[in-house]
């Protein structure tokens, strides 16, 4: 080969995605440092960790087999049914409320100030975890499923209005012009040109959100907002781990069925 190694530069360094190599190492050092600091900050002693792992074996053996007395079983069924009902009502309520918010937050339909209000509502409702909303709702309207329904509906607004407003922003405005051109009123424009374009998406998103709300409705009870969650929390507090494991398995089953049904329904619709 006609190569003379001495005459050509034998050094090469891989270009980096960072500003330069020093920056790269500084960034890596910072990340490593922060992770180590985090680790130090939560103060995990190896001893405690090992004891926990040992406890894991005990816990699993206490959990098996999953079991419940007839009374506990009835209570569980009640809780599950309540969770499912809560998710249905919350989804409906949330969608009804989020429809106007979605139109407000679509920058092709709403004037600027209204658009900003719509976006803020979405940002706030999306930012808080459903359990935080639930715990506040419990204090506002008392223990029970109503608090859960309100919390889930609140979360639904953020999710639904965001995705729906994006969908509205993508619509074909030519169709709106056409309806307006034949003399349609504002409402008629929405009914005849905007709605037909977004209906399939609305249905798909509703089914998807129902699935998500079903998941969440099984846990909001942990802060007192109705559903199976409170039963689960009580079983843990009474060290009745066989009952806990049964409830967890039932929740997993419900969630998996919900996910499969939702995926199937969305495929059918689209």
């Amino acid at each position: 080969m006609a190569t003379q190694p001495g005459s050509v530069d034998g050094n090469w360094e891989r270009p980096t995605a960072f500003y330069n190599r020093t920056t790269k190492y500084v960034v890596y050092a910072l990340i490593t440092g922060f992770v180590l600091y985090s680790f130090w900050n939560i103060r995990v002693s190896p001893d405690r960790f090992l004891r926990g792992l040992g406890g894991g074996v005990t816990l699993v053996s206490n959990m098996l087999p999953p079991a419940a007395t007839p009374m506990q079983f009835d209570l569980m069924v009640q809780g599950i049914v309540e969770s499912i009902l809560m998710s249905i009502i919350a989804t409906t309520l949330g969608i009804v409320v989020s429809a106007p918010v979605a139109f407000m937050a679509a920058n092709n339909l709403a004037p600027r100030p209204i658009y900003l209000v719509g976006r803020s509502i979405i940002a706030v409702t999306r930012s808080f975890h459903e359990l935080i909303v639930a715990i506040v709702m419990v204090k506002a309207v008392g223990f029970g499923p109503l608090a859960g329904v309100l919390a889930l509906a609140f979360k639904t607004v953020g999710f639904f209005a965001k995705l729906l407003s994006e969908e509205i922003e993508d619509i074909d405005t030519g169709q709106m012009d056409a309806i307006e051109a034949v003399g349609g009123s504002r409402m008629q424009v929405y009914l005849y040109s905007v709605l037909p374009q977004i209906i399939p998406r609305i249905i798909g998103l509703s089914i998807y959100r129902l699935d998500i709300n079903l998941r969440h409705s099984t846990v909001v009870g942990i802060v007192g907002a109705g559903g199976i969650g409170i039963t689960l929390l009580n079983s843990f507090q009474k060290y009745d781990y066989q009952y806990s494991s049964l409830i967890i398995l039932v929740i997993v089953g419900i969630v998996m069925i919900g996910e499969a049904a939702s995926a199937y329904a969305r495929r059918r619709v689209q």
């Binding site: 900050n41 939560i42 103060r43 995990v44 405690r48 960790f49 926990g52 792992l53 406890g55 894991g56 816990l59 359990l131 998941r215 969440h216 099984t218 846990v219 942990i222 689960l232 929390l233 843990f236 781990y241 967890i248 929740i251 997993v252 969630v255 998996m256 996910e259």
Partner: peptide
């Protein structure tokens, strides 16, 4: 994949609090 996804984080937290006691470790 599907089992860990189907159990909500708060339920995992309940379980790990039983194992490791209250605190950030259970949370992590």
């Amino acid at each position: 994949v599907s089992f860990t996804r189907s159990v909500n984080v708060i339920i995992w937290a309940l379980i790990f609090v039983v194992l490791f006691g209250p605190g950030a470790l259970a949370g992590v």
